[in-house]
């Protein structure tokens, strides 16, 4: 495993993948990162990337513009996503050709600054345009909740991106984890299994407290630099309950709350890492000059 900086000579005779360029038959790195070789392709993976979606990713986005038969969606990536009128679910689940009336009534479905969840349908090869779709009942406009933004590098692709917590209480809290780093925390309807909710509910204070706890636990995971998925979030919530820390004090005592989750991850990663690197420990104590 090699660390390279831009301009370092990597290898010869392979195919130049992401993060590299070829000159006179030799491959040089163009990013600062770690060299990976997959069969005949050499690529350099940097520490930070802008979010690059793949087909099938669950994404949460904010509508930026309403255009001719489509919406432009901000998805925290190198380009805005595009949601075509043909790719949404009409209310009632109708399946029909979109007519001129539909075109005129686009704002009734989604308008500017609405937050929606969807899936990446396809990516154009020649100009990188990202097409989204919300054809499933679990996607659509999001209400009764709030959005948090997290570094997308801590989110992995999972089987289900819709997670529920606090199930033992009579009011569970759910969250949709978008692969692009946007996370939506909300209260699901108990009766229907759909995430598409039609009405704005009155949310009680206890529910709000639970939503805040969930939000804080996700932020703690980001601060302690751990991936965000069901098990880790659950660990943080458990340790919060054990140590009886109140919701508002959670962020101050992030180290205690993140411990359990850390052990979990480290054991998981040590299986993946090559042997000589298992001894390297992560250390987040020296924060020289960080602006947030």
């Amino acid at each position: 495993m090699r660390i390279v900086v831009p301009g370092d000579y990597v290898d010869e005779g392979f195919i130049a993948g992401h993060g590299t360029y070829e000159q006179e038959g030799k491959i040089y790195a163009s990013l600062a990162g770690i060299v990976h070789r997959i069969d005949k392709v050499i690529c350099v993976k940097p520490l930070k990337t802008s979010f690059k979606p793949d087909i099938g990713d669950v994404i949460i986005g904010r509508i930026v513009a309403v255009e001719n038969k489509r919406w432009t969606v901000d998805i925290n990536s190198y380009q805005h996503g595009v949601l075509n009128l043909t790719n949404i679910n009409l209310p009632g689940g109708l399946q029909r050709r979109r007519s001129e009336e539909d075109k005129m009534q686009m704002r009734n479905y989604f308008k500017e600054n609405d937050i929606i969840s969807g899936e990446v349908q396809s990516i154009n090869t020649h100009d990188g345009k990202i097409n989204m779709q919300t054809r499933n009942l679990k996607y659509g406009k999001l209400i009764n909740g709030f959005l948090i933004k997290v570094d997308h590098n801590y989110i992995r692709r999972m089987k289900s991106h819709i997670l529920e917590f606090f199930q033992e209480d009579w009011q569970p809290i759910a969250c949709i984890i978008g692969t692009n780093g946007y996370i939506w925390i909300y209260t699901p309807d108990k009766l229907t299994q759909n995430t598409q909710q039609s009405e704005v509910k009155v949310i009680s204070k206890e529910t709000r407290v639970k939503m805040a706890v969930l939000r804080n636990s996700i932020i703690i995971l980001e601060k302690v630099q751990l991936p965000i998925f069901k098990d880790t979030i659950q660990k943080v919530l458990d340790s919060q309950r054990q140590n009886a820390i109140e919701a508002k004090d959670m962020l101050k005592s992030y180290e205690i709350l993140g411990k359990e989750a850390k052990y979990l991850i480290e054991s998981e990663i040590n299986l993946k890492k090559p042997v000589n690197l298992q001894l390297i420990q992560t250390d987040i104590n020296n924060q020289d000059f960080i602006m947030n």
């Binding site: 660390i3 590098n153 630099q225 992560t282």
Partner: peptide
Amino acid sequence: KLVKNINSFYFK
């Protein structure tokens, strides 16, 4: 910096 955050390369 890269070594410090080396675990994040194995998150996904």
